[in-house]
């Protein structure tokens, strides 16, 4: 090869590598760390830390990450799981996160909370999009997920290199941003976020109008894609509604979802709102955020009920006597219990 061409190629590769290294460093420093606040921003990325195969993965929105504790499920039922749900996670985001999940860790069961079936293309929360998507490893699914979630003012490039979105944080950078630039401590409990506060009274949300069609086309299209995908991968799918006491859900939604799920083998739908008494949820003690989410007390109750429901129905295995699992998961459960106690003590 001509020496000039060789030199040019070496220089070009050098420039590209330097540019990538620079972007990697800037991404690390400028991306929000979500360590002390907004810890849910780490749910997506902490999934990649899981060291054992998973038996179940739970998708959906914030109602799920406040309601289902994988560590508690491990301790009581012995199956492994992860809550891959984020604040305001739309159906299309759940779809791409599901594909991202199955690529590296194929579970025996997938559950999907359908609270966000009500929202279509007109729904946009940039902060929530960022928390959900930025933590995904770079892949075609991440790009598709970003493309389907972005506003037209946004740049797809900024989802590949988040510094192009967060560069203006230069005057807010603190010690945490440098300390955790390339390695963050785990702040969620396998996707579960503890809420220690309690709201006594439910908040009156603006009641959504019942529209025809019931769900936006985009949400329904992606629900069908999710069902088809799970069928193709031969993974049972449970569509569910996590219990909340807010007036933004209609019985007609249940009918429609039951109808959709009924059309497919291996797909079920259950609305746990109707099981609140059976679960033992107490309106005065177990809810937070105007009763739109469960607090830790409610989550304990719901996790136990939900765990038993899926274990029986889907025959999830018990690994508690298997050293390959117990070494990892017992530690995680210990950490969960310790932090739960610390949190409760701090509240007192």
């Amino acid at each position: 090869m001509n020496s000039v061409i060789k030199k040019t190629i070496i220089k070009t590769v050098g420039v590209i590598l330097t540019a990538l290294l620079l972007l990697f460093i800037l991404d690390g420093i400028f991306s929000p760390k979500y360590i002390t606040e907004n810890r849910d921003g780490n749910i997506t990325s902490e999934f990649y830390h899981v060291k054992t195969p998973l038996d179940a993965v739970f998708f959906g929105s914030s109602t799920v990450y406040n309601a289902v504790s994988p560590d508690l499920l491990w301790d009581r039922y012995g199956f492994t799981s992860y809550t891959r749900a984020n604040a305001s996670q739309t159906m299309w985001q759940s779809y791409y996160l599901m594909k991202d999940t199955v690529r590296s860790n194929r579970p025996g069961l997938i559950t999907l909370d359908v609270s966000f079936m009500k929202y279509g293309d007109d729904f946009f929360e940039e902060a929530a999009n960022r928390k959900t998507i930025d933590g995904m490893r770079l892949s075609a699914d991440k790009i598709r997920c970003a493309k389907s979630s972005m506003w037209e003012e946004e740049s797809l490039f900024s989802y590949v290199f988040p510094v192009f979105r967060f560069h203006s944080r230069w005057d807010e950078l603190g010690g945490e941003d440098f300390r955790y630039a390339f390695r963050r401590p785990e702040v969620t409990y396998d996707g579960f976020i503890m809420e220690f506060d309690t709201t006594d009274e439910p908040e009156e949300y603006d009641r959504l109008e019942l529209k025809t069609p019931l769900f936006p086309q985009k949400a329904e299209d992606y629900l069908v894609k999710i069902i088809d995908y799970c069928a193709k991968e031969d993974i049972p799918l449970l569509l569910m509604k996590t219990p909340t006491f807010i007036n933004t859900w209609f019985p007609e939604y249940d009918d429609r979802l039951r109808q959709i799920a009924g059309g497919y083998d291996g797909c079920d739908y259950v609305n746990f709102d109707y099981c609140a008494d059976e679960i033992g949820l107490d309106r005065g003690r177990d809810y937070v955020d105007g009763h739109s989410h469960l607090n830790v007390e409610g989550a304990q109750k719901f996790s136990l009920f939900f765990g038993e429901y899926i274990k029986e129905r889907y025959g999830l295995p018990d690994h508690r006597t298997d050293d390959r699992y117990s070494g990892v998961w017992n530690d995680r459960y210990t950490r969960y219990c310790r932090d739960m106690e610390i949190g409760k003590a701090a509240l007192k």
């Binding site: 330097t18 540019a19 620079l22 972007l23 800037l26 400028f30 940039e126 506003w151 003012e153 946004e154 740049s155 900024s158 510094v163 192009f164 979105r165 560069h167 203006s168 230069w170």
Partner: peptide
């Protein structure tokens, strides 16, 4: 030269007026 270039590119990325909200 490489340091100058890298710092300049970083300065444009950090202090440039672009992106959502701008």
């Amino acid at each position: 030269r490489w340091i100058f270039c890298t710092v300049s590119v970083a300065a444009v990325i950090i202090f440039g007026y672009y992106g959502l909200g701008y």
